[in-house]
């Protein structure tokens, strides 16, 4: 996970997210950050929301960031990034890239309106939501990103209610509905896909968005050594579809042969109370969503081909 594990000295020199931070063993987020910064390169400014990343990378006087980094508050990364990029451009800097790193609490919930404002106004920044599906930094409370039935400290499993009673907010689709040039999903385990998407997004002018699923060991109740496996399973079971929406046209980037959702759910403490009926219901929702995405892709790609003729 840290730079010293790399066997390629050339790659090691390019490591912009440094080792020595204080993330948990098996943190899915720190892995993702490393790939994001590798793809982004040194001419990048990172704007970070309050949350796990801020805490494990920026305890004064130590920093894991070898690119310029700013943290201000929980909910204002989108306008802070907008302020950075508008000032750079006003000063004649047309090259430096601005990337937001914000958790699902910041992106789905408390900073949601400000994210929408940034997208609508068209600021030239890449907003990356690292989605570990709850407020992990404050001790695993439910967020708008927490999936149905998941057990958190504010969606507990009791005698009457069992886990979160509401569904996950479809943030990527809401963001894409702003007609921005690029919105996509990925995970920190699918690092080639993730790096390619960061590079692609940064080659496009205007607001871009990536929603990246990242494991949280204490929040999900999983084994540290299985963090990448769970992300792989999330994609292989179609629970977390990996796609991109470019100029409004949806394309599925990964279409793995479907595994049952149980493959992903099992072993996660947040789901251990699920009944066979719950699992069947989740399977049904996942299948319906996957099917609708395939239809949308078919429709979009045919329309795109027709436009190109």
């Amino acid at each position: 996970m840290n730079a010293s594990n790399s066997t390629n000295p050339e790659l090691e020199n390019k490591e912009l997210f440094k080792s020595g931070h204080t993330a948990c063993a098996g943190c899915g987020v720190s892995v993702g950050l490393r790939h994001i910064l590798r793809a982004a390169g040194p001419d990048t400014i990172v704007v970070n929301a309050t949350g796990c990343v801020e805490i494990f990378t920026s305890a004064y006087p130590r920093s894991a960031w070898s690119v310029p980094y700013i943290h201000c508050l929980f909910e204002n990364t989108a306008p802070v990034a907008a302020g950075v990029v508008e000032t750079l451009r006003a000063q004649g800097n047309d090259h430096t890239k601005v990337i937001v790193i914000a958790g699902d609490g910041a992106s789905y919930d408390i900073g949601f309106g400000h994210l929408s404002g940034m997208l609508e106004r068209g600021h030239d920044a890449l907003y990356i939501s690292y989605d570990n599906e709850a407020y992990m930094n404050t001790g695993v409370q439910r967020s708008g990103a927490t999936p149905w039935k998941a057990n958190t400290t504010t969606s507990q499993v009791g005698s009457v209610f069992k886990g979160k009673m509401q569904y996950k907010k479809p943030l990527t689709e809401i963001v894409a509905a702003h007609s921005i040039p690029y919105a996509a999903t990925s995970t920190s385990a699918h690092y080639i896909d993730l790096q390619n998407k960061v590079k692609k997004a940064l080659s496009i002018k205007g607001p871009k968005f990536l929603n990246v699923l990242m494991t949280c060991v204490p929040g999900w109740g999983t084994e540290p050594s299985l963090s990448m496996q769970y992300l792989k399973d999330a994609v292989d079971t179609h629970v977390w579809p990996v796609y991109e929406i470019e100029n409004g046209f949806l394309k599925m980037n990964l279409k793995p042969e479907k595994k049952p959702v149980e493959t992903y759910l099992k072993g996660q403490k947040r789901f251990k109370h699920l009944t066979p009926e719950d699992i069947a219901q989740i399977q049904k929702m996942v299948d319906e969503k996957w099917d609708s995405l395939l239809w949308k892709e078919k429709c979009d790609q045919e329309r795109l081909a027709a436009l190109k003729k």
């Binding site: 302020g83 950075v84 990029v85 508008e86 000063q91």
Partner: peptide, 15 residues
């Protein structure tokens, strides 16, 4: 809230 947050970003960028 976004206005003052943009000022934070802009000032941090040296503006």
């Amino acid at each position: 809230f976004s206005a003052i947050s943009m000022l934070v970003g802009g000032s941090a960028a040296g503006g």
